[in-house]
Design a protein around this nucleic acid. Sequence first.
DNA 1: ATAAAATAGTTAGCTATTATAACTATAGTC
DNA 2: GACTATAGTTATAATAGCTAACTATTTTAT
Lengths: 167, 167
Amino acid sequence: MTTSKRTSPPEQTALEEAYPTTVEGLVLEERLGYALRRAQLKVFKHFNEAMREHDIRPAQFSSLVVIEGYPGVTQSSLAQTLSIDPPRVVSLINSLEERGLALRVRCKRDRRSHGIFLTKSGEALVERLKGLAERSDLEATQSLSEIERRQLLTLLRKIYVPETQDD
Amino acid sequence: MTTSKRTSPPEQTALEEAYPTTVEGLVLEERLGYALRRAQLKVFKHFNEAMREHDIRPAQFSSLVVIEGYPGVTQSSLAQTLSIDPPRVVSLINSLEERGLALRVRCKRDRRSHGIFLTKSGEALVERLKGLAERSDLEATQSLSEIERRQLLTLLRKIYVPETQDD
DNA sequence: ATAAAATAGTTAGCTATTATAACTATAGTC
DNA sequence: GACTATAGTTATAATAGCTAACTATTTTAT
């Protein structure tokens, strides 16, 4: 199984330090997944830093925003909207409920499902957080112009919502 | 602590089903982190599907590509290049070594560091994988034109490498 | 109307990712 | 030679994404 040997004689290898820390021109720079991960890593780091005092993670923030926009949204609907699997939605809503930010209400029509609502403090918090998130994004993308930021959002949306029309 | 109450009377909530599965016009659509995650999720899913028969994960692929481009690269240099923390690089290279795709060679000049090289089978594999990755990206972004794909890569690169110049 | 199939939510378990802290060995500096 | 810094490693921990299995309900088919 391990019949293959090394590609370069290790004896004559002494220039490791010369390697650049940024990989210009490497095939990797053409890989969309790589670029998306690097960009997301940076944007999320800024986000987490901005939310640190509120102890809110990206998925919690997204949930709060969706619940605010669609009060009474069911867990399955939330899962689909955020591309989060059902088990994770459970723990997500649990944490929001424990912190008094949201609550489940059993649905009368279909007693299998639960509508989710924000509490007063949940509503107050999400209003505050939206401003912080906005500022965080701007900081993380200082190197982009406002036009470029719009372009980027449009292109990304086209990937995950293929039916998206240009603005 | 739990003084706040719900935002809507749950008694009159019976329209959950009417909620859209795609959230158009919601504040969330303006959040860069959200869009990045959704897009990355889709691109990575395609990638993992394309690599399934080879049992190669995104981070392993990136590592192979960098090692191929810079044979003898040290683990710390690899960590910095890929924005992966050192402990993870260890397990990453361990797995590549166990599979006979790469190997560590202790550096003579600085005996603390290890140069990483591809084996013959590692070289053969990465050549094969690069084609698969390319096709996977195209499939995942069918809704984008070639120009838009280039724009997207450029914009993303501007975020994580702020010094990047336009093409 | 009853049996079968589908759905909403939940619990449990696995792997991977990101992040720390602490430790060993080596190298560089005062 | 003592102090400091660096490369790699080990060990934890929290989170994320995925799958299977189970309960309670609803819908569909017979």
